[in-house]
Simulated scan of single mutants.
Amino acid sequence: MPTDAPRPPIWARPEPSARAPRFSRERIAAAALEIADADGIEAVSMRNVAARLGAGTMTLYNYVETKDELFALMDDALMAEAVVPDGELPAGWREATAVIARRTWAVLTRHPWAISLRQGPALGPNAMYHFEQSLAALSGTGLSVAARFDVLATVDAYVFGSALRAADARGGAETERADVEALIAYGMQQLATGRFPNAADLLGGRDPRDADVAGPPTDPAGVAAQFERGLQAVLDGIAGWM
């Protein structure tokens, strides 16, 4: 008999059969998200999650058998945040797609470590409902199946890419001042070589630290506004497929 049969996802198994289990999968996922938000995804372990719950590590294994399953629960908890509440999805394809994109982007920027977490084929109940809502947004467009997948892939690529840039902007804002000064000094030296005329033209000979020198937004409001401008441009392009 083969022993390497595919392992079913955690959602295909019932929760522990005790009449009143001490923990739920939702509570375990919430504890893991709190750790990741505070200390990064690297700090998430069965031991640390168990400690946050006030349980022994072996107790946690009664609910979650592997770290991959823990990550799967975390992923689906994130998707629960991205799901549009029932009855609130707009009727038109454009605004419905925009609402889903905004909610997904908000989740990824609220939990920037999630971009690295969402790399596997996790497909929990909330992820499936998020996908269902994305398809529902396009249901009246008359697009072919292939075209609908193209739309979803295009919007997702923009949302995830923008969230990654937002995380970079946050990281840049938290960089030590001495490191920022060293980077700026190096950049100015490189511009002086004449090898980067277009980059130099952006500054017009100015110091990038001057308050009135235009640059990419780093404050939350500016980053969100830039995301919205880009989202509308993406939707303008998609509208040409209709």
Rank of each mutant, 00 (worst) to 15 (best):
G124T: 08
D201T: 01
G87Q: 08
Y63E: 07
L117D: 08
A114V: 08
D212L: 12
A225N: 04
G120I: 01
N126V: 02
V145R: 13
A31P: 07
F71P: 02
E176A: 15
A127K: 13
R25K: 02
F196T: 00
S162W: 01
L152S: 03
L123H: 12
P112G: 10
A5H: 10
A225G: 01
P217V: 05
D150Q: 09
R195C: 03
A221Y: 00
Y63T: 11
L73N: 06
N48S: 14
A178S: 14
I184R: 15
S116E: 15
S139V: 11
R148Q: 15
R118G: 00
R102S: 00
L135S: 08
G204Q: 06
E26H: 12
E15Q: 14
E34D: 15
E88L: 12
I41V: 14
R22S: 12
R110I: 02
P14H: 05
D39S: 14
R229L: 14
R25C: 01
R22W: 09
V64T: 10
P9L: 02
E34A: 15
V64S: 05
L70C: 04
D68V: 04
E88M: 09
P8Q: 02
V44H: 08
N48E: 15
D39L: 08
G222V: 06
E132G: 11
L73H: 06
A199P: 00
G161Q: 12
I41G: 01
E15R: 14
L108V: 10
D219I: 06
F196L: 13
A36C: 10
P220K: 09
N62M: 09
A167E: 10
G87W: 04
R170Q: 12
R110G: 15
I10Q: 02
P121A: 15
I28L: 07
A91S: 12
L231G: 02
D4M: 05
T57S: 12
N62A: 14
A178E: 15
A178F: 05
E42N: 03
D201L: 11
G120H: 11
R13H: 09
N198S: 07
A31V: 10
I184E: 13
V99A: 02
E42A: 13
L164V: 08
G222R: 10
V145A: 14
S144G: 15
E42S: 09
L123P: 00
G140K: 09
G222W: 03
T193Q: 04
W105G: 04
